[in-house]
Amino acid sequence: MGNFLLVTIQVDLYDRLALNLEADLVQMVNKTGAKGVLIDISAVSIVDSFMGRIIGNIASMSKILDAETVVVGMQPAVAITLIELGLPLKGVQTALNVERGMDLLKTMIDESPIEDEQEYPEDDPFAQ
């Protein structure tokens, strides 16, 4: 998959498995130097607050290791349930399917250095 790690979750995870996934994945990002992580949750029928937190953690941890995370394939019922539960998964990028997720990752990785350059002058208080 080039610079991307593709993770497909195929079973309903209990807590320890989810924590293992988190640790393994962050280690893999470090080991492979991947620039992007794609997590396919299309086979996951339940995302509760714990699982949601793990997904958020993976995204923030990967970000510190300079990799972007995109979650793809969320079932509609899961999306509705997450919002009613009160867990909007802020800070986690999502896409409808693997293909679109790959495209999103590519643009995120290509564009990030350019965005940084544009932001600098605006943030500078002495610019005027």
């Binding site: 339940i46 509760d48 509705i80």
Partner: peptide, 30 residues
Amino acid sequence: RNRVKEVAVKIKMGLLNQTKLITAASELVR
């Protein structure tokens, strides 16, 4: 979760309500 799902399917609960119920159960059992 699986047992709750079985029961919900048996009374013909829709997928969305099933998901909500099982998610709530998952929170409480944790």
